[in-house]
Design a protein around this nucleic acid. Structure first.
Lengths: 170, 170
DNA sequence: GATGCTATTTAGCCTACCAAAGCAATTTGG
DNA sequence: CCAAATTGCTTTGGTAGGCTAAATAGCATC
């Protein structure tokens, strides 16, 4: 086994683990990964709007509407018209929704961070250097990814600027 | 910026780059990532069967049927009954299909391998060590991932043993 | 030649996505 | 103050990718 292969395999394990985790998380909560992600976003502040969620997840409002529909049907969130601007609909998390989030296993990144911090200084430095090297090799552009490890949204976050040109292609 | 965050960001960039690549590839080939993946598998030997594809991709045969339908409609592959066992349908790649594969940009992993091999020995070793460390942190189990970096199938390859218990939750 | 296994397709359903059209409320520009 | 534009969201209708269950067809065997 050469080292190029060894590194590819490791990368693949990382990808898989991240995906897998999102799936487990969502399943234990009785939601799909994407639904869970929506719930997480709502949970952050207790409420949110469809537009905000759509932007965070880089999907269309229409998609968010249907995802929220499902969460409403399951009693995870409720819709409520905003008093200040009645065009807006606030999506509020319910107790059940909050419990669902809380009962879910620790976010992957927490688990990771704990282990990471337990490492020795030199090893931390080595890992950061290596990962950044790999990231640079795979992805020439240096984007600003947020430090939250969450497979549930990478699937679409790559559509970076939907504002400019809505991809007229069929 | 602490190093735990830096490492998470790098991991995320790796995930994104992999996904992104699958998408670019698919767009330049005029196929979706999954369809392209099927075509790749058929292209490997020039032909394949639905079952083989289903196993490789860890999806059901029914799913493969509909994917192959689309590839047939686009003239990328043709179906042909096997002479030796007429239950089997061989899926043969066409010239167009082969050209599509060939015209597609280099597989991500090839690009990566080239760069990886260009590195100095000590750096290769460091990267392998770091990646394996991270993979171990994220994913306790040591699975046998193949040394092919390909986002297009990790999405579902994680369903390792659907035989046991099909997760009755609805 | 019935029984059963294997390979595939068909049928029906789901989630997740999108664009376009529609509706409602607010803001803007006379 | 009213019409028009803009904004926020939902509805509608479509696509892709996934599933299970059932149908179809061929092989194997006793």
């Amino acid at each position: 086994m050469n080292r190029a292969d060894a590194s590819l395999i490791a990368i693949r394990r990382i990808l898989r683990a991240t995906e897998q985790f999102g799936r487990e998380l969502a399943q234990s909560a009785g939601l799909t990964p994407v639904q869970f992600r929506v719930l997480q976003i709502v949970a952050e502040r207790g409420d949110s709007t469809a537009t905000a969620i759509a932007q965070r997840m880089h999907v269309s409002q229409a998609t968010v509407t249907s995802l929220v529909d499902r969460l409403v049907r399951q009693g995870m969130v409720v819709r409520e018209k905003s008093r200040t601007d009645r065009r807006q609909t606030n999506i509020l998390i319910t107790d059940k929704g909050r419990r669902t989030i809380e009962d879910a296993p620790d976010p992957l990144h927490q688990r990771y961070v704990d282990e990471f911090l337990a490492m020795e200084d030199w090893e931390q430095a080595m890992i950061v250097a290596a990962l950044e090297r790999v990231a640079a090799m795979l992805d020439a552009k240096d984007m600003d990814a947020s430090p939250v490890l969450d497979a549930r949204d990478i699937r679409h976050e790559i559509r970076d600027e939907p504002a400019e040109e809505p991809h007229a292609a069929g």
